[in-house]
């Protein structure tokens, strides 16, 4: 099977007021279709930076990234926007729903960019809301939902356009552990039901316990990479 993500010698050096910060120091990694992988490591180990780089939100200082077989550094800004829109779903730590849009409008946003007709959008929104257990909440505003519910909407938003990969940066960090566990179980189920690949960063042991692959980062390098059976 074709790998979804391949990286080769990826480094990222930030310049913090002129002082170089080596966030990633040569990462070689391959992630196959359908994986449910966790990036773990202490704070500052480079998890967020790595997710940004492999999703094309950030460009590596050196090294190469292939996403679905495409070399990201070859793509122009607009092509990259379209590529992200069609291939990656994002779930952020702070939910990051658009506050002025309803649940339905938040979820259908990407489909709107993809110019999918209204009827189909509506149908898919209702279907995915059922999947994440939020049936009937489509016309609420994000502020009327709890944190866990908002994160479910974020997952629905990421998944609704059926991208190959879902990238989640510490999706449970702002939730209490019971809600976080439920959310992860849900993500696990969705991963099993679909072909979608899930990559998420975490430093929550309860989340790590549910991952099928644990990639441990330390000081911008892979310290350990283990496949587990949950």
């Amino acid at each position: 099977m074709a790998p979804v993500i391949v990286t080769e010698g990826v480094t990222r050096v930030y310049s913090d007021d002129g002082v170089p910060v080596h966030a990633l120091r040569g990462i070689d990694l391959t992630i196959e279709r359908g994986e449910f992988a966790a990036l773990v490591g202490p704070s500052g180990s480079g998890k967020t930076t790595f997710l940004n780089v492999i999703s094309g939100l950030d460009t590596p200082t050196d090294g190469k990234v292939w996403l679905n077989g495409k070399l990201l550094s070859r793509m122009s800004g607009n092509a990259l926007s379209d590529f992200r829109r069609d291939n990656i779903g994002f779930v952020f730590q702070a939910y990051n729903l658009i506050p002025v849009l309803t649940v339905e409008e938040n979820i259908e946003y990407i489909m709107l960019l993809q110019k999918i007709p209204k009827a189909e959008r509506h149908e898919r929104v209702l279907a995915i809301l059922d999947e994440v257990g939020l049936g009937g909440m489509e016309s609420r505003k994000p502020t009327q939902l709890s944190g866990g519910q908002q994160q479910r909407v974020a997952i629905a938003r990421a998944m609704v356009s059926q991208p190959a990969t879902i990238m989640a940066d510490e999706p449970t960090a702002n939730l209490d552990s019971k809600i976080g566990a439920e959310l992860l179980d849900m993500m696990y189920r969705l991963n099993m039901q679909t072909e979608m690949t899930f990559i998420f960063s975490t430093h929550d042991p309860m989340v790590m316990a549910r991952a099928r692959r644990l990639i441990t980062l330390k000081d911008g390098q892979i310290e350990r990479d283990e496949v587990r059976s949950p």
Partner: peptide
């Protein structure tokens, strides 16, 4: 900033 960043991450063009 964050909100526009989210929109851009999701594939909204500049």
């Amino acid at each position: 900033t964050r909100e526009y960043g989210v929109l851009k991450a999701m594939g909204t063009k500049p």
